[in-house]
């Protein structure tokens, strides 16, 4: 059966921050957002009527429901922690992540984790991103202590300037008051895999776009346990920051899930459209 949705974002579940996430997603791009939730009556009012946002009833850990949501052709899947489930919400997220992985492993999966202690349980699911506010807080506080401490004890001007680095972390995540943001530009694998990172940087910088990192795919080959099981290949996104100037993407990632999967380039720019147009012009 032909998929109804393509390149869309599937949001599994709904919680107190879901409405804000939908708003942020709508600000960032024009992809359709499909919300898959068991009880639509509960959330219909919160979601409201928004353009490009679709509701679908079903249990997100159920493979049939995920197939109906066209997870196989989705751009990414976002698994939210349910407020109502309490401590067992992470276990439910593991079930959903495993189900998504079995349908299409190259789809980008982001999971909101409630308890950081459960992070290890997601090792087998090959989830691309695990996000928890607890971890963000800890890391930002630790960076603050580190940079301020270094600045206070430094003798050199460089060391003293470290204190000014503290707000940068906040600006990168919350660019509300900053014009510069990090975006991802999708590049055609066949066209750009033979390019060096430095080449892209030298092209982008005069045009006000600063490349920061490549995003490719890491392959996991999972052997068959016995003759009744099939060996299978799992793909997980792979970020390569500050790559050596003269190394090409194809040197880093020998295996690629297919020519239709784009090579990602994270850039610092003032607008997403401008960043995309800059690299379209690179021949």
């Amino acid at each position: 059966m032909e998929p109804v949705f393509r390149n869309h974002i599937v949001m599994c579940g709904w919680n107190r921050r879901a409405a804000a996430i939908v708003s942020a997603l709508q600000e960032l791009g024009q992809r359709p957002i499909l919300i898959l939730h068991e009880n639509l009556d509960d959330i219909a009012q919160s979601v409201g009527k928004r353009r490009g946002v679709f509701l679908m009833g079903g249990n997100p850990s159920d493979k049939a429901a995920l197939l109906r949501a066209d997870v196989g052709t989705a751009y990414s899947v976002l698994v939210l922690a349910l407020d109502s489930l309490g401590d067992s919400t992470d276990a439910r997220s593991v079930q959903i992540a495993l189900a998504v992985e079995r349908i299409r492993s190259a789809v980008f999966t982001v999971v909101e984790l409630r308890d950081i202690q459960n992070k290890a349980h997601f090792g087998w699911t090959k989830v691309d991103d695990l996000i928890t506010d607890q971890e963000i807080a800890v890391r930002m506080l630790a960076q603050g202590v580190r940079h301020v401490g270094a600045a206070q004890s430094a003798d050199s001007q460089e060391g003293k300037s470290e204190r000014h680095l503290v707000p940068i972390y906040r600006q990168l995540i919350d660019p509300t008051h900053s014009s510069a943001q990090i975006f991802r530009v999708d590049l055609n694998w066949q066209r750009f895999s033979s390019r060096c990172f430095h080449e892209l940087l030298a092209w982008g910088v005069p045009r006000c776009v600063l490349p920061l990192a490549w995003v490719g795919f890491k392959v996991h080959r999972i052997p068959a346990h016995d003759e009744n099981h099939q060996a299978w290949v799992s793909w997980k996104s792979d970020v390569y920051a500050n790559p050596p100037a003269n190394v090409r993407a194809s040197d880093i990632w020998k295996d690629w899930p297919g020519p239709d999967h784009p090579l990602g380039l994270l850039v610092l720019a003032n607008s997403r459209k401008h960043a995309e147009s800059v690299f379209e012009g690179l021949r």
Binding site: A20, L25, R31, Y75, L80, E112, D129, I131, I136, A241
Partner: peptide, 22 residues
């Protein structure tokens, strides 16, 4: 951090790889 988690979840779904980089 609650606000950052919300923003990061949205940006991570729209820009795969960004969250891992941050």
């Amino acid at each position: 951090p609650s606000r950052y988690a919300t923003l990061l979840l949205a940006r991570a779904a729209e820009f795969p790889g960004l969250s891992a980089y941050i």
